[in-house]
Design a protein around this nucleic acid. Structure first.
Length: 589
RNA sequence: GCACUUGUAGCUCAAUUGGAUAGAGCACCUGACUACGGAUCAGGAGGUUUGGGGUUCGAAUCCCUACAAGUGCACCA
C-alpha cells in the first residue's frame, strides 16, 4: 500500500504546497458498510488544506484517481476518503504474491531468541494454569520462528527446595514403598498425592499444637513435619546419599509423567535447565555487584540492592548465611543462558504474580552493566480462575491437565458421534481425530484471549465446538480439502488467469494479503491471540465465499480453477496459522 | 496501606494501537440443503465501553479521580 501513501504525499504537496511524511498519514481497511477497500483518513490534513474534511478528501481523491493507475474510483464520507482499486490490481496481488509458494514466509533476520516456558515444580502434576503457560510459550516460540528468528525453547525445571522435600518426606513416612508401577499411578500424580498428604498431616499437627496453647504462628513453625522437611532440605544440600537417591527416584517419576503430558499437549523443548544445577550460580554475580558497588552488605552479612531511586524497594540478593535466594539464582540463570547462546532476546513466560520479581531482576542486570539485559522480556499472563475462584492444588480445587485433556477428547468424540460424519473412518483415524478436535477446542479457547488478561474457565460448561472456536476453523479447513479433492485440484502453473473478481473474492484476497501483517504484529506483541483472531476472520470470510460462489459448478473452467486456487491458498493459510497456535487441522472430520 | 494489572451486550471475547453508526461467538428469535460437507450461511434483538471530570476535529483507547476485581509487597521459590 506504500504506493498509495506516496501518491497521497504528492497530492498534498501539489494541492496544498506542504511537505508531509508518509508516516503521518493513516491508511486503513474500508469498513464493510462503505464502498471501497482502502481508506485514507483526511482529518489531520485539514490543517494544511484549510478547507473542510469533505473538500480535502475530494481534492485528494481526484488527484489519486488521475495519478495512480491502480485506483478505480473514490468516495468521501465525512473525513474518510474511500478508495476502490481495480480488479486487475487485486488479481495481480493474488497471482503474484499470495499464490506464490514463499508467501508469508519471512527470511531469517539473523537474530536469536530464547523462550523459556513451562518451568514446572517437580512436586505435583500440571494443572490448567500450567497448560496456559505451555500453550503460550510454545505458540510464541513458533510465531517468532515464523518471523525469521532462530528460537531456542527452554524449560527451567524447579526440582529443588522445600516443596519437593515435603513430597519426599510424606512418601518416606506413609508411602510403604509405593511406585508408579505398583500403584498404577502416573509418576507426577503419585508424587503429587504425597504433597497433598504432607499438607493434610501437617495441618493436623498444627491444630494439635494450637490446642496445646501455641499461637498459630508458633504452631506452624514448630510442627514436627515441617521441621523434618527443613532438615531434609539441609541434608539434600549437604549431599546425603539416601536423600539424594530418593530425590532422584521421585524426580524421575515426575519427569516421566510430565513427558507424557507434554506429548499430549504437543509442546517441546530444545534445552532443559535444572535449578538444582543453577541455584548456586548467582553468587559470582553478587561478588561482581559488590565490587561495582551496585550492591551493599549489611552488618549481618546479607547483601542488598537499593532500588528506591527507581521507585522500588531495597531488595535482598544474598542471605546472611551466604546461601542464595530466588533472585540470586535467577541472576545466575540469566547469565548462564546468555553465556551459552548469546541471544538477542530472551523471554520468560511466567504468570503475572511475578511481575515485580522480573522487573527487579532485569533492572539489577542492567545496573550490573549487562547490556544484553535490554533484550530480556517477561511475558506475563493472567491467572486462570474457576467460577469458584482461584485454583489451589493443596485444596484439590485444581483442574488437572491430564484429566482435562481426557475430557476434551471424550467431548470431541460425543460431538463427532452426534454429527455422524466419521462413522466409517478407520478406528485409528477416529482416535486421532478426537484428539485433534478436542485439543483444538481447548488450545483455541485458551489462546484467543490476550495473554495479560485473566481467564475464566468453567469446568461444568464444556468448551464450545461451534462459532468462534478451534473446531469451527478446523471444519473450514477440512471442507476446503474436500472440495479440492472433488475438483481434482493440482497446482498447475499453466493456468489461464481470470479477469474479474466478485466482492467476496476480493474480501478473501484482502484477508489473505493481511497474513504477514498480523504475523508480524503477533511477534511484536508476543501475542498468539492476534493470530487466533486473524485465522478466525479468515475462516469466516472463506465460509461466506463458499456459500456465495459455486466452485465446482463455476460458469467457466478458468473461474473454477481460480476459485480452487483461492481455496487452496486459504487452506494453506488456515493450516499455517493454526500450526502457529500449536493446533493441528484434520484432512476430514 | 503502597505498587502493578484488569474493567466493553446476559455470558466469553474483538476493535487495524487516537478514527466512521463500538464488532464477533454463545444463549434467545426468524430464515437457507432434491448438497462443492448444516461443526455452515443470511437476518433479528441485545451497549450511557464501571461512574465522574479533562485533552482532541475525533476517546473503549491518552491524563486525573472515584469504585470494583485480581496480583504482589519473605533472609519462600
Amino acid at each position: 500500500m506504500d504506493f498509495i501513501l506516496e501518491a497521497a504525499v504528492r497530492a498534498v504537496k501539489t494541492l496544498f504546497a506542504t511537505d508531509i511524511s508518509k508516516e503521518s498519514l493513516g491508511l486503513q481497511q474500508t469498513r464493510k458498510e462503505f464502498e471501497g477497500e482502502i481508506t485514507l483518513v483526511v482529518f489531520p490534513l485539514t490543517k494544511v488544506s484549510r478547507t473542510s474534511p469533505e473538500q480535502t478528501g475530494t481534492a485528494i481523491g481526484k488527484f489519486l484517481v488521475n495519478e495512480v493507475e491502480e485506483i478505480e474510483s473514490f468516495n468521501v464520507i465525512k473525513g474518510f476518503l474511500n478508495l476502490s482499486l481495480k480488479n486487475s490490481y487485486w488479481l495481480r496481488i493474488f497471482y503474484q504474491e499470495i499464490n506464490q509458494s514463499n508467501f508469508g514466509v519471512f527470511p531469517s533476520n539473523g537474530k536469536k531468541v530464547m523462550v523459556e516456558y513451562s518451568s514446572p515444580n517437580t512436586n505435583k502434576p500440571l494443572h490448567l494454569g500450567h497448560v496456559r503457560n505451555n500453550l503460550l510459550g510454545y505458540s510464541v516460540a513458533e510465531i517468532l520462528k515464523a518471523n525469521g528468528y532462530e528460537v531456542i525453547k527452554a524449560n527451567l525445571v524447579n526440582d529443588r527446595g522445600i516443596h519437593i522435600c515435603k513430597s519426599m518426606l510424606a512418601w518416606q513416612k506413609f508411602g510403604n514403598g509405593e511406585t508408579p508401577e505398583t500403584s498404577g499411578l502416573k509418576g507426577d500424580h503419585l508424587v503429587g498425592k504425597y504433597y497433598v498428604l504432607f499438607d493434610q498431616e501437617y495441618k493436623k499437627q498444627v491444630e494439635e499444637l494450637k490446642n496445646q496453647g501455641e499461637t498459630e504462628e508458633q504452631a506452624k513453625k514448630n510442627a514436627p513435619l515441617i521441621r523434618e522437611a527443613q532438615e531434609m532440605l539441609q541434608q539434600w544440600e549437604q549431599g546425603n546419599p539416601q536423600v539424594i537417591s530418593l530425590w532422584m527416584d521421585m524426580n524421575e517419576w515426575v519427569y516421566a509423567g510430565f513427558a507424557e503430558t507434554y506429548k499430549k499437549l504437543d509442546v517441546d523443548f530444545d534445552q532443559y535447565y535444572y535449578e538444582s544445577n543453577t541455584y548456586l550460580l548467582g553468587k559470582s554475580l553478587i561478588d561482581e555487584g559488590l565490587e561495582k558497588q551496585v550492591f551493599f552488605k549489611k552488618e549481618d552479612g546479607s547483601v542488598w540492592i537499593d532500588l528506591t531511586a527507581d521507585g522500588l524497594d531495597e531488595k535482598l540478593v544474598l542471605r546472611a548465611d551466604g546461601t542464595s535466594v530466588y533472585m540470586t539464582q535467577d541472576l545466575g540463570t540469566a547469565q548462564l543462558k546468555y553465556d551459552e547462546y548469546h541471544t538477542d532476546k530472551a523471554l520468560n513466560v511466567v504468570g503475572n504474580e511475578q511481575d515485580y520479581h522480573f522487573k527487579v531482576l532485569y533492572l539489577i542486570l542492567k545496573k550490573l552493566g549487562k547490556t544484553w539485559a535490554e533484550g530480556l522480556y517477561h511475558l506475563s499472563y493472567g491467572m486462570v480462575d474457576l467460577p469458584s475462584g482461584k485454583m489451589k492444588s493443596r485444596e484439590g480445587t485444581v483442574v488437572d491437565a491430564d484429566d482435562l485433556i481426557a475430557e476434551m477428547e471424550v467431548t470431541a468424540k460425543a460431538q463427532t458421534d452426534i454429527l455422524g460424519k466419521a462413522r466409517d473412518f478407520p478406528e485409528e483415524e477416529k482416535q486421532d481425530l478426537y484428539h485433534i478436535i478436542g485439543m483444538g477446542a481447548l488450545k483455541y479457547f485458551l489462546l484467543k484471549v490476550e495473554p495479560k488478561k485473566r481467564l475464566l474457565f468453567n469446568p461444568n460448561e464444556s468448551v464450545d465446538f461451534q462459532g468462534h472456536t478451534g473446531p469451527f476453523i478446523q471444519y473450514t479447513y477440512a471442507r476446503i480439502r474436500s472440495v479440492l479433492t472433488k475438483g481434482n485440484f493440482i497446482s498447475d502453473p499453466n493456468f489461464i488467469p481470470v479477469k474479474t473478481v466478485s466482492a467476496v473474492e476480493k474480501d478473501l484476497i484482502i484477508q489473505l494479503e493481511q497474513f504477514p501483517v498480523f504475523l508480524a504484529e503477533a511477534a511484536e506483541n508476543y501475542s498468539p491471540a492476534v493470530v487466533a483472531n486473524y485465522v478466525y476472520e479468515l475462516a469466516k470470510t472463506y465460509n461466506k465465499f463458499y456459500h456465495e460462489e459455486s466452485i465446482l459448478k463455476a460458469e467457466e473452467e478458468t473461474v473454477k480453477v481460480f476459485r480452487l486456487q483461492l481455496s487452496a491458498v486459504s487452506a494453506q493459510m488456515i493450516k499455517k496459522s493454526m500450526n502457529l497456535l500449536g493446533i493441528e487441522v484434520p484432512e476430514r472430520m
